[in-house]
């Protein structure tokens, strides 16, 4: 009993150290997505200028596994990610749909896509963040993997790079195609 008193501080220290050690691997800015496992929220976005399509709505999604990518011409990280999305389009691996988020100028999005290339199958404009909030988006870029039934299965925050693609996104997509 007496000896316990000498061991207790060490034990307490070890427990706290274990918690902090685990904290090294946690990202305090990463927020869990509420949407994983849920159907895509209802949204119906108008088209952006110069694409000549009908816009982008939740009803477009069921049928095949696809990516929904939230971007904006104001978003620097999206520019970093953009070449990778163009590469995906060239390889024809999976359809990518875009939500052009929070543009103050309706010409800015189209101009950006003209300059850097357009990897998207469908694009909708979301200037007032309606769809972004429905998706629980906190920043751009964010990418959602949607399955054949129109259910969100995975959320990626930040620019996608080759490592993210090989390690998580592509395996998730291949798995979903088997279902």
């Amino acid at each position: 009993m007496k000896r316990l008193i000498y061991v207790a501080p060490l034990a307490v220290f070890l427990v706290i150290a274990a918690f902090f050690y685990k904290g090294f691997d946690l990202n305090p800015r990463a927020l869990p997505s509420m949407l994983t496992g849920q159907p895509v929220p209802p949204f119906d976005l108008p088209p952006i200028k110069g694409r000549g399509d009908k816009g982008f709505a939740d009803t477009d999604l069921p049928g095949e596994v696809s990516l929904v990518n939230v971007f904006g011409s104001w978003c620097v990280a999206c520019q970093v990610e953009h070449p990778f999305l163009m590469g995906l389009k060239e390889r024809g691996l999976v359809p990518i749909h875009g939500i052009d988020w929070k543009e103050t100028d309706p010409d800015a999005g189209p101009r950006w896509l003209k300059r850097f290339g357009d990897p998207y199958t469908l694009v909708g404009a979301d200037p007032d963040s309606r769809a972004a909030i429905a998706f629980g988006v906190t920043g751009a870029p964010e990418t959602f993997v949607v399955d054949r039934a129109g259910i969100v299965r995975y959320k990626h925050v930040g620019p996608i790079d080759a490592e993210d693609w090989e390690d998580t996104l592509w395996p998730v997509i291949r798995e979903l195609r088997k279902e």
């Binding site: 927020l31 869990p32 949407l35 998706f135 629980g136």
Partner: peptide, 9 residues
């Protein structure tokens, strides 16, 4: 509604 989108956070 907002909790269903963003969680308890």
């Amino acid at each position: 509604y907002l909790v269903s989108r963003y969680g308890d956070f």
